[in-house]
Design a binder for these strands. Structure first.
Length: 319
DNA sequence: TGCCAGGCGGGGT
DNA sequence: ACCCCGCATGGC
């Protein structure tokens, strides 16, 4: 413990993203200070022979992608480039989706004012699940505090040579189990049992669907698949959406059932509904439900408020 | 202080 | 197929 992994630069490339594409907006989406610093996006990844990290920034002709790794090995280059494409959605074609949400009362602002914003994905299903568990029965603020604690206390520490950058990754299942006692310090509370159980299941790879694992229900499983696989054809329904969707789209001031929300989302956004779920949290700044309803009512929703939100988290976290 | 919050499973009906 | 409760933590 306490040791840094030093990574050196082994490759650089420029990738042309599919338009419409805005690098900065995408890189800052749900990014902490370890994921985006205002210019560069940092994307750590694992391979069978060690750790790597891709650093991406906007260049003249496209997105400049540098691969850092523990060894100069082609395996890292391949992984680093494909992880960057996936996480930043460089090959994702949003033209059809943007047409669908053009006149959407919440999401319409994206094709109009924030064109080129894609969801920033995570690198693995495991990471998606970990993030999902931290959101269970917690506010945006508390949930992300837990995620950042997991990284700070249990994560791997990477040092990128010559960049003077140090960043913490989410812990692997192995690290969770090896240091299960330290989980207490991360303030995940009773979610600790779930996290340990899920780590074991991932290590043994002994499940067909995420929902088969105790502690993972509809919401967490769907959110994990949206974030990690860009599997957008399911809507992760929670209490927050059950209040917000009827309020924003039908002026109904009471909660809908999960099934009603799911069917309504399918009608509005079709196979893109999972993406809509994430982007609705982005445009509403993921405020607690009462405040979110108030902002909608008063027409004051703001993507980039002067407080922690999906698009501003990177400014409000400290290493 | 004593609720309450982007879930979940278990145990009741 | 429902309803209800407790679970740990932080914020107000």
């Amino acid at each position: 413990m306490g040791r840094y992994r030093r990574l050196v630069k082994i490759h650089e490339d420029t990738i042309l993203p599919k338009e419409p594409y805005d690098f900065k907006l995408t890189a800052m989406c749900y990014a902490s200070c370890w994921d985006f610093d205002g210019k560069q996006a940092y994307i750590p990844f694992y391979t069978s022979s060690g750790m790597g990290c891709t650093v991406a920034s906007r260049g003249e002709e496209g997105v400049v992608v540098s691969v850092y790794a523990e060894k100069a090995d082609d395996e890292f280059i391949e992984s680093g480039l494909s992880v960057a494409k996936h996480v930043l959605g460089l090959d994702e074609d949003l033209r059809e989706y943007y047409k669908i949400i053009e006149d959407d009362p919440l999401l319409g602002i994206i094709p109009r004012k924030y064109r080129g914003l894609h969801m920033r994905a995570v690198t693995s299903l495991w990471e998606g699940v970990l993030i999902g568990i931290c959101q269970q029965n917690a506010s945006f603020r508390q949930g992300w505090t837990m995620v950042l604690n997991l990284r700070r206390i249990l994560g791997e520490v990477l040092q990128l040579e010559k960049l003077n950058v140090i960043l913490n990754t989410l812990p692997t299942p192995e690290r969770i189990l090896r240091q299960a006692k330290k989980l207490k310090e991360t303030k995940v509370g009773y979610r600790r049992d779930t996290i340990v159980n899920v780590a074991k299941s991932f290590l043994k790879a002994e499940f067909e669907k995420l929902e088969d694992i105790k502690g993972i229900g509809q919401y967490t499983a769907r959110l994990a698949r949206v974030l990690a696989l860009r599997k957008y054809d399911e809507f992760p329904v929670d209490r927050w959406f059950s209040r917000l969707i009827p309020y924003a789209y039908e002026s109904v001031d009471r909660e809908w059932s999960r099934q009603k929300v799911e069917r309504y989302a399918e009608k509005l956004w079709g196979k893109w509904r999972g993406l809509s779920a994430v982007l609705i949290t982005v445009v509403t700044a993921a405020e607690p439900i009462q405040e979110a309803l108030q902002s909608i009512r008063e027409g004051t929703i703001d993507l980039m408020p002067n407080k922690p939100a999906p698009m501003t988290l990177w400014k409000y976290t400290k290493p």
